[in-house]
Design a protein around this nucleic acid. Structure first.
Length: 257
DNA sequence: ATGGTAGCGCTGCTA
């Protein structure tokens, strides 16, 4: 089965291209980020017509996540489910069980820059994520955690480690925070398969970054060991980044037997 | 040299 993660940067702006892509690629599970719409405005009916079960967790203007699946979405949860006092109102986490796999779809806070107050918030968010995984899953489960991590796991995931040194998405504290999540028992499926491949999933809209292939790999599919053992391929479809009305992110596709 | 582009929604914030 094919599982996809894709930051669409507004599902309403992307819908025509997205539907064409779904019809061509026929994925079984799709995790979406930055849908940027409240649930009432999400194109659920159109996707249902294409044969997908749909679970959404959106908000006005910012953030927003969703999961599509050709099989029913069971035990759908939204947020970390921590003490309501800890809820910040951001729609960044949705999870469901489908195709026999627990799927967690994430839109990690961007952080803006290292001096922003959003940066310590981002670092702390990974601690909340780890606590959430500890509460709700086991490393022996068939578990996928995927999404826009807004962190490059290491310098292999950066077009110019020199230019990006100590910049947002690439700082050591962010990478350490991401590691607190993976130490739950998660493996980066792309990096496991391709230790030496340098490939990007995001290119800045500004300037010539896509034209010059100056990108970062920040969209990642992680899996527990049982998922790693079943994964036959992982690909980033950079053609989806080309042309008019493209998201600034490309979809990442894992094939899991 | 703090640019540059895109989306939301209506002024500036977020990325």
């Amino acid at each position: 089965m094919k599982l996809v993660t894709w930051n669409l940067n507004s599902i309403r702006m992307r819908m025509a291209r997205f539907v064409a892509w779904l019809e061509r690629e026929q994925p079984d599970v799709v995790c979406l980020q930055e849908t940027k719409v409240e649930d009432a405005g999400f194109p659920t009916a159109e996707l249902t017509k294409l044969g997908y079960h749909v679970a959404t967790f959106g908000q006005r203007s910012y953030n927003g996540v969703a999961i599509l699946s050709t099989q029913p979405l069971v035990d759908v949860t939204r947020r970390f489910g921590e003490d309501p006092q800890d809820d910040d109102g951001d729609a960044r986490v949705i999870a469901a069980t489908t195709h026999g796999i627990r799927v967690v779809c994430l839109y990690v806070p961007n952080g803006q820059e290292l001096t922003s107050d959003k940066y310590p918030y981002k670092l702390a968010w990974f601690g909340r994520l780890r606590a959430y995984l500890d509460r709700t899953a086991k490393p022996t489960d068939p578990l996928v955690v995927c999404g826009d991590m807004n962190v490059t796991p290491d310098d292999r995931d950066v077009w110019s480690p020199e230019k990006w040194k100590d910049q947002i998405h690439c700082s050591a504290p962010e990478r350490a925070a991401l590691q607190t999540m993976t130490e739950f028992g998660l493996v980066d499926l792309f990096r496991e398969k391709y230790p030496d491949t340098r490939a990007w999933s995001w290119w800045d809209y500004r300037g010539v970054s896509f034209f010059k292939d100056q990108g970062l790999r920040i969209d990642v599919i992680f899996g527990t060991k049982s998922i790693v053992d079943r994964t036959t391929s992982v690909a980033i479809d950079r053609t989806a980044r080309k042309g008019q009305d493209a998201s600034d992110h490309a979809p990442v596709i894992a094939t899991i037997d």
